[in-house]
Every structure is written in structure tokens, then in C-alpha cells.
Computed example of a mutant assay.
Amino acid sequence: MSTPTPTAPKATTPSPVSPAAGSALASTQGKTTIADGVVAKVAGLAAREVNGVYGFGGTAARAFGAITERIPGSRSSASQGVSVEVGERQAAVDLTIVVEYGVAIAELSRAIRRNVIGAVEQMTGLEVTEVNVDVVDLHLPDEEDDAPAPAPARVR
């Protein structure tokens, strides 16, 4: 006579739902959509973390961003110089950056891609198909910022 094999107790937590259409953002219980702006912010913040990235966007965009940061109540945009295309399961990222002088651009681009892909995929569940890096300027150590200086106070 053999002894019965004990059965595992039933789990009290719900079992994972199999994703519909192969996406972590869709299941039989509902669908999650992520706005382009959210993906752009995640990508922009991840790219900013990489040493050697001085700034984002062209000269005019950087100057405009510097001005809007000084306006009370405004928030600087973490997605300046970042554009994305977001589908149901995938995203593509385009970055326009300014590089610090002396940094190896090819290595910097690889580090940016690694960081952006990791952050976007981890935070959103989207597969990043490409990260294009457009280097538009080189920041020299002795250069002043391209942003205009704040206007002097008129009232003292």
C-alpha cells in the first residue's frame, strides 16, 4: 500500500494572468496604455544620468528651456530634446544631445542606449526597438551656457 502524495495547498494570491497579445500591458483583466510624454520623460531622465551628456536639444531649445525654468510655477521639461513613438508593445526613442568635450561619443551613445532601454523597459513594460542619438553640439569647458543671463532686478 502506497502512501498518498501530499498536494500543495492552494495559493492565496491570484495566479499571474497570461498576457493577451504577448504584452505585459494587456491581459484578460484590462489594458494599460502609456502616453508618449511619459515614455519621453523616462527616456530623458535615463539619458541625463549618463556622464558626458551636457544637455538636450539644439541651441534655441536649450535657451527656451532655461527661460521657462525661471518662470515661477513652470516646470522644466524632462523630455526636452527627446521624441518617442509609442505603440501597443514597442517604443522607439530619438535623443538630440549636446556632449561634453573630451567624451568618446561612440561609447557615450552605447551607455545612453543601455540606460534608456533599461529604464523604459523596466518602468513601462514596452520593448524598446531603437534609441537614436543625434549629437548636435559640443560643450567646451570654457564656454558660457548658451542660455541668456537672467535680467537684472529693476526694483531694489
Rank of each mutant, 00 (worst) to 15 (best):
P72Y: 03
I105R: 11
I67H: 14
P72C: 03
V98W: 07
G125L: 03
E69R: 15
V84Q: 03
V86C: 13
N115I: 03
V135F: 15
I105W: 14
Q90D: 15
N132H: 11
Q90T: 15
V116T: 05
L126G: 12
A104S: 10
I71M: 14
R70M: 05
S83F: 01
V133W: 07
Q80H: 04
V103S: 10
Q90K: 14
A91H: 01
E127G: 09
I117N: 08
V120S: 13
Q90P: 02
G81N: 08
R113E: 15
R114E: 13
G118D: 15
S79P: 06
S79K: 09
G65V: 01
Q122P: 03
R89V: 07
V99T: 03
T68Q: 13
A63L: 06
L108D: 00
R113A: 12
A92G: 13
V103Y: 04
R70W: 12
V99S: 07
S76R: 12
L126I: 02
V103P: 06
Q90W: 06
D134Q: 09
Y101E: 15
V99I: 09
V98E: 09
G81L: 00
L108H: 08
E69G: 11
G125I: 00
A106S: 14
A78W: 05
V136Q: 13
V116P: 08
F64M: 04
L108F: 04
F64I: 00
S76I: 09
Y101A: 13
A91D: 02
V131N: 02
I67P: 04
A104H: 12
E85W: 03
G118M: 01
V99K: 08
E127Y: 07
N132Y: 07
S74A: 06
L126Q: 08
S83A: 14
E107I: 01
M123A: 07
G73S: 12
E100T: 04
G125N: 02
A78Q: 12
V131E: 02
V82E: 01
I97H: 11
T129Y: 04
E88I: 05
G102T: 03
R110L: 09
Q122M: 11
P72Q: 02
S83V: 06
R62I: 01
L126C: 07
A92W: 00
G102Y: 04
S79F: 00
I71S: 12
R62M: 05
P72W: 03
V133D: 10
V135G: 10
V136T: 14
G73H: 12
Q90F: 10
R113V: 02
S77V: 01
V84S: 09
A92R: 08
L95V: 04
G102P: 06
V82S: 05
Y101T: 04
V120I: 11
V116M: 10
T129L: 12
G73F: 10
I97Q: 07
Q80T: 15
A104I: 02
S109I: 01
V86F: 11
V103F: 03
A106T: 10
R114M: 05
A91N: 05
S77L: 06
G65N: 14
A92N: 06
P72R: 01
S79N: 14
T124C: 12
A61Q: 15
E100M: 07
L108G: 06
R62K: 07
A63K: 14
R114A: 15
G81W: 00
A106G: 10
E69C: 06
Q80E: 15
R62G: 05
S77K: 00
M123V: 10
A104T: 11
